[in-house]
């Protein structure tokens, strides 16, 4: 095809488009960051940038390296799994310049209830108190050592720890039934609740003490033939003993 037969319009348009494409290619050459696409469709240097951010929390090892005395106490206590910085706050500054920065410590009554204030959504058995009623006005540290938070004396009331069950039982027909009626509680459970558990009933006879047809108990208590009622199930397979659903 002769050059003269190419329509006149095509020439300037071709030049413009060629220029545009050249400009784009050149821009890509010059402006795309060097490390882009090294490992994937991203700037490889960005990984290093993210990795080089400053650290605020030093981590428990760093604390343990110097504070041997506290480690010793804490190792034996319920708080052994806790990082120091949970309560003392980020302490990397302190680790790098111990004399210049001192981490804080919550000494009032505000901080501990974040974990130990009663909240029905918390798992059963997690030690909780009602901050409004629990020795009002006193700082937690007056009685408890946060590094070894063993109780000043073992609580006599089961509700001290089992608040959730207590509050459920409180509004049920079983409110006057003492926990020990159904549970056998070894003495060591008071001092070491996680290691020594209270016992739970294993057969129907426990409930039968009050609810069997021939039981020696007040007439107002509902009776059932504990031999045949409910077939092969145990009582607590259907009823929740801390809040039985039956109405009088």
């Amino acid at each position: 095809m002769k050059l003269s037969r190419i329509p006149q319009q095509v020439i300037p348009l071709t030049i413009i488009f060629a220029l545009a494409i050249v400009a784009l290619v050149a821009a890509r050459q010059m402006l795309v960051p060097e490390s882009f696409g090294k490992y994937g469709h991203y700037r490889a240097d960005a990984v290093e940038e993210v990795a080089s951010h400053d650290i605020s929390y030093a981590g428990i090892q760093v604390c343990n390296d110097c504070h041997d005395d506290i480690v010793e106490v804490k190792q034996e206590s319920y708080h052994r799994g806790l990082s120091c910085e949970v309560c003392h706050g980020p302490a990397n500054n302190h680790a790098e310049a111990p004399d210049e920065y001192t981490p804080g410590a919550p000494r009032g009554r505000g901080y501990c209830p974040l974990c130990h204030g009663y909240n029905p959504s918390r798992p059963v058995g997690f030690p909780q108190i009602l901050p409004k009623m629990h020795n009002p006005g006193k700082a937690c540290m007056t009685c408890h050592n946060p590094h070894a938070p063993t109780l000043p004396h073992a609580p006599e009331e089961c509700s001290a720890c089992h608040r959730e069950i207590a509050s459920t039982k409180m509004v049920s027909h079983h409110t006057t039934v003492d926990c020990r009626t159904c549970h056998t509680v070894p003495k060591d459970h008071w001092s070491d609740p996680r290691a020594v558990h209270a016992e739970k009933p294993t057969d129907r006879s426990t409930c039968g003490q009050c609810h069997a047809t021939g039981a020696d108990s007040p007439k107002i208590i509902p009776r059932i033939d504990i031999e045949t009622h409910g077939g092969r199930y145990l009582c607590w397979d259907c009823h929740y003993p801390h809040h039985p659903e039956a109405t009088l």
């Binding site: 993210v50 951010h53 428990i60 990082s83 949970v86």
Partner: peptide, 17 residues
């Protein structure tokens, strides 16, 4: 990421009591 690449735990895991 700045912690885990140095062998430390993420801050949330570090402080989870």
């Amino acid at each position: 990421y700045h912690r885990i690449t140095k062998g430390m735990l993420p801050a949330c895991v570090e402080v989870c009591p």
